[in-house]
């Protein structure tokens, strides 16, 4: 960008030279953007734009769509999305669990689910307790469920979580978070290791905050410096990527008569 203040040289001969506040930076930024579109690449964010600038970028997208052949979907994409959707339809657990999470289950019912997650976390503690749990030993917490005793469940599509993104998921047995990190997709239990209250993702501070007693966990699941008390780290949940989906390894759904009921009482044995 060495051409600062040299704007006049850039202006085509028959263009008005004065009545524009456009800057060289704006020309170059849009140019970069157009080149990314021409390569069919996800463009980098242009930063905060005014509505007028956004319309300019929109016009670029529209004109790009008019490049012959550009807006034709890739057959491979068409086929893979269809497979994903068929799987979605054929996996009643995903659909039903998500619908339940959205509509039918009350907040108290979800808290009851959190107690279930805490119970699962307790198993993790038992498995991990033979190992010293220093702050950098998150790996020790990964064996939450004994191999063979859990099930894989799809909780997100690859596309829906950008790198750095976090998505909450709810299954019949566990509430948790999937994170898309530079190392891939990682999952954590979403229940506070103190009393099992359900954590909220705080996108600003990038922490998991507990609404009950001020517990806070970093995005990797370690107790955050700002936590009221340094609680045990959040158990990690095993993940895999398959068929365009992120899967988590969780305990099988409890038999139906132990499911949380809509009135908020829990079917889990009390201790």
């Amino acid at each position: 960008m060495g051409s600062h203040g040299d704007d006049d040289n850039l202006i085509p001969p028959d263009e008005p030279k004065v009545p524009s506040a456009d800057t060289v930076e704006q020309y170059l930024r849009l140019h970069e953007h157009i080149e990314q579109l021409r390569q069919d690449k996800r463009p980098t964010r242009p930063g905060k734009l005014t509505p007028e600038e956004a319309r300019t970028y929109q016009a670029a997208a529209l004109f790009r769509a008019a490049t012959p052949g550009a807006d034709e979907p890739d057959p491979e994409f068409v086929a893979s999305l269809r497979a994903k959707l068929e799987q979605e339809v054929a996996t009643p657990t995903t659909t039903r669990a998500l619908q339940a999470a959205r509509g039918r289950v009350s907040r108290r019912g979800l808290l009851a689910g959190g107690i279930g997650a805490a119970a699962a976390a307790a198993i993790g503690v038992a498995v991990g307790s033979a190992l010293p749990h220093t702050a950098n030993q998150a790996a020790a917490w990964t064996t939450l469920i004994n191999p063979g005793s859990g099930v894989w469940q799809a909780v997100a599509t690859l596309e829906e979580i950008p790198v750095g993104g976090v998505k909450r998921f709810v299954t019949d047995s566990v509430v948790g978070f999937v994170r898309h990190t530079s190392e891939g997709f990682l999952a954590l239990s979403g229940a506070c290791t103190h009393m099992g209250c359900l954590l909220n993702w705080n996108a600003g501070a990038r922490t998991f905050d507990c609404p009950c007693h001020g517990g806070r966990f970093t995005e990797t699941g370690m107790s955050a410096p700002s936590s009221t008390v340094a609680y045990n780290p959040l158990p990690a949940i095993q993940t895999k990527v398959e068929n365009g989906m992120v899967w988590v390894y969780i305990v099988s759904a409890p038999p139906s008569d132990t499911l949380p009921t809509p009135d908020g009482t829990s079917g889990y044995p009390t201790r």
Binding site: L37, K41, R42, F63, D71, K84, L98
Partner: peptide, 30 residues
């Protein structure tokens, strides 16, 4: 096709168009 093209005309690149189209249909199926 019609949804993909609509989305493409709004984002102008394949990567985002595929992403958003997937999101739309997954939401739709659910």
């Amino acid at each position: 096709h019609v949804i993909y093209r609509f989305i493409y005309s709004k984002v102008g690149n394949r990567e985002e168009a595929e992403d958003l189209t997937s999101q739309v249909f997954i939401k739709a199926v659910r």
